[in-house]
Design a binder for these strands. Structure first.
Ligand SMILES: [Mn+2]
Ligand SMILES: [Mn+2]
Ligand SMILES: [Zn+2]
Ligand SMILES: [Zn+2]
Lengths: 135, 135
DNA sequence: TAATTAATGCAACACCGTTGTAATAAATTA
DNA sequence: TAATTTATTACAACGGTGTTGCATTAATTA
């Protein structure tokens, strides 16, 4: 989708378009440092604000793993507008070999039930060796 | 276990014992702010270093959830000495009502297999309404 | 194109976590 | 138990990260 920003009802600026195109250049999740490196020029405050807007509009989602910088990845379809409520049918996989974090789709997403608990959301993070490194 | 620190081969100091006892006063995970509040007196640098030592020795484990401060919880048995390699058979549950994060044991922990991936670890975070609030 | 509304970028700041180092306490050994 | 060794604590200082106020500039709307 090319007019994603317009669809999300936010202004289409060169900076935002460039950040979006960087996300689209990667198939995996990326930390801020990668975005900074790829931007022709950038202002870190604007970048922070851009990330916040993208998160708030459901354009990207955040992946937090203990001991890692936050990573960000494009939301596939309409994940909803809230940062923490995404319709993930995928897990987040951290490769211990190449370090890359990927969103991996699952055929069947696990279900869990806990007595007396009401479970609204299930986030799954896996780690090991990714398909690229595992050859 | 009372001589946990000795067993882990680290010096038994009043500060560390007090931090340990605070952990034992809660059945759920707690952020640094709770530890600080409960300590009779504290030095923030010493607290940071204590947390790092406890993590490294497998005395506690860290729970990171997007948008939340890091929480920490006692490791039940021997989870191993490494921070990120714990023998969890439990998930981390965040209650959207009371805000408390708990380690919840599962009868059967889900298994996931991905073609071409080697999965070493599976971390599961759930959110919803906890058993205390769900009454 | 003009008026309006929103994004950008600078300055300044608060907060978090880390490091070097001297003082102090705990553990070890005699 | 006392002396020695080893580890912890706490102060000072610092760097990194993320935020806010505000003036400038750009995008959208009419
Ligand atoms: Mn994802
Ligand atoms: Mn836990
Ligand atoms: Zn890999
Ligand atoms: Zn609750």
């Amino acid at each position: 989708m090319n007019n994603l920003l317009k669809n999300k009802k936010i202004s289409e600026t060169p900076f935002r378009l460039e950040v979006l195109s960087i996300f689209n250049n990667y198939k995996n999740a990326i930390p801020l440092s990668v975005i900074e490196k790829d931007l022709k020029s950038y202002n870190r405050i604007t970048l922070y604000r851009t990330i916040k807007v993208f998160l708030g509009k459901g354009i990207i989602h955040e992946i937090t793993i203990s001991g890692e910088d936050s990573n960000y990845a494009i939301c596939e379809e309409d994940c909803g507008t809230n940062t923490h409520t995404h319709n993930h049918n995928h897990i987040h996989f951290k490769c211990n070999n190449c370090g890359i974090i990927t969103c991996v789709e699952l055929e069947k997403y696990p279900k869990i039930s806990l007595p007396n608990y009401k479970i609204n959301q299930l986030e799954i993070q896996a780690s090991g060796v990714c398909s690229t490194c595992n050859q």
